[in-house]
Design a protein around this nucleic acid. Sequence first.
DNA 1: CGCTCTACAGTGACAATGTCACCCAACGGC
DNA 2: GCCGTTGGGTGACATTGTCACTGTAGAGCG
Lengths: 221, 221
Amino acid sequence: MSVGDWTERFTGTRKLPRRVRDRLLQVARVRHYPEGALVFGPAKVPDGLLFLHDGTIRVSQSSDRGREIVLYRVEAGESCVLTTACMLAEEAYNAEGIAETDVTVVNLPRTAFDQLAGEEPDFRSFVFAAYSRRLIDLLRVIDGVAFGRMDVRLAERLLALAGDFKEISATHHDLAKELGTAREVISRILNDFHKRGLVEQSRGRITLTDKAGLRGLAASR
Amino acid sequence: MSVGDWTERFTGTRKLPRRVRDRLLQVARVRHYPEGALVFGPAKVPDGLLFLHDGTIRVSQSSDRGREIVLYRVEAGESCVLTTACMLAEEAYNAEGIAETDVTVVNLPRTAFDQLAGEEPDFRSFVFAAYSRRLIDLLRVIDGVAFGRMDVRLAERLLALAGDFKEISATHHDLAKELGTAREVISRILNDFHKRGLVEQSRGRITLTDKAGLRGLAASR
DNA sequence: CGCTCTACAGTGACAATGTCACCCAACGGC
DNA sequence: GCCGTTGGGTGACATTGTCACTGTAGAGCG
């Protein structure tokens, strides 16, 4: 499963300049997490701004009755402002970040964050851009959940998860957690896709046999 | 309809210090909008940070097939970072801000914004807090839309809109646009509420006759 | 006053989705 | 092989969204 180009749709992505990045690495603490590890969550609120040096973090929200929905993914070079948001707002929240690959995270303590924000315009721009981008991400999620059809959303997500490849290794349950729905719903829709010749299925694996068809379905709102 | 205490649940709200506020007013342009006016939208992207001096702005997102959902409300003293987000991300978006009362808006141009952000730590904190708070707001919306029951959401919203009062002047259509659903759904649920003795209805007006009952329903997830 | 027009609300039928309770099959470990 | 776990299929039903109507209160107007 490739999520490599997950974020390439955002043309406005702003990477941190090397000079600032080096300065950041001087004052920050570096941490490693293996694939599948919990990077942050309700019971594990970071004390500063998280910065993803390497890997991918999947950020999702869970309901009090076990369902989940993926909010967005944090890629290498990006920061996860959600944690600071929750830190600042001093609010209970139920979003969590899971390492989707082995990851290297840079934790920038709050005082250092304040200092950098004051002294480095590039750093400020970067942080504002990060916030903005997450806001837009969440608007997309809301649009999908509130107004979108599930088959369309699933087709979109399958294409996004596959990237340039044709195969995805994910269970129906995994996909349900992506879109915030139930496994049975995914099963039904994938069965329908199969009958229409769009996908092939095997245990824990989905092959997109007709990407153009899926794209057509995704476009037909 | 009172939305006065809409945002008081946020204990972390951070108001801008008077000194910074005065400085802001020197470089910014002040604008007035009457109740019901469009303050910003897809076809009206501001060129700077919007700042609400007086009144209330309702920010909602609309689907391409006419449905709408309210994302949050901006109260006096707060800023609307969503506009800057969209400005920075250079992304198409379909969120719009409607003046819910007569409003006075302060538009801080981008260059002045950058300068203030560099020179005034309080201003920075304020902007970061504003972003954070909106992120949390959107997380709430997602939680409700993705996982919540409609009757529960309606009960919550009725209580929030009523504030300390017992009456709300809103049509079923208005309430549908609050929650991102269809008028018929609101009609059905309100009818059910009526049968249970929770509300009384008349044209364009709803009376909460049993607030405790509504609160109980809202609490029963 | 009665007329018409429009916004607001009620309703039934159906489709899409979520929930529940099962079942069966594939795979891994033993 | 056997067994336990995980992944997946299915039918019944509840909730919600959509569509196509109907009825009605109120405003404006003769």
